[in-house]
Amino acid sequence: MAPHLPRELDEGMDGKKQEEIFNSWMEAHQAIPIKVARCHERNPEDRADLVQNILLQIWLSIPSFDERCSLSTWIYRVALNTAFRWRRTESRRSIGLMRYEMHHEWSGRDTPSDLELEELYSAIRKLEQTDAAIIMMHLDGMSYREISEVMGMSEKGVGVRLSRARRKLANLLGG
């Protein structure tokens, strides 16, 4: 069960509490910013910048979490919205300020499954941004309803879009 934000922290949250919440959320859902960034950016430096930008936005958006959707849905929203709005030059400028204060380590990619995973990411990056986002959430086991909540489209639309995106992805992967 994902750690949730206690109601009383919605307003007037102090820094220490926010830090605790952020840490617990990241412990449970740190893969989401990484997945979104890997699906969005090929270049490792841009990817790292995007991850940091997403983390920053998650931090800033913590007080707005109202538990009307699951935490993973909410983090996906913030991560995707950041990725869609993100522009490399701006990011570099703003994130440069905290480059030395945040540490990121990428896991090594030397196992066969890591290589296959990279192939999958590479194929996802070739899809339209919207298709890539839907595929990513589908791979993470999210329901049509949850995907529709993130994207702001109908469940029927998600279904149509997903089957089309899966066909494209299968073609890209040579299946």
């Binding site: 910013p33 990484i34 945040m102 296959e116 192939e119």
Partner: peptide, 28 residues
């Protein structure tokens, strides 16, 4: 083929990120 990759997605490590939330808070 796609199903094989989907299985990889579920089992493989996507990377880790460690954030010094205290430093981030101080910075902000």
């Amino acid at each position: 083929e796609l199903e094989k990759y989907e299985a990889v997605w579920k089992t493989a490590g996507h990377g880790t990120v460690s954030v010094d939330a205290g430093a981030l808070a101080r910075h902000l």
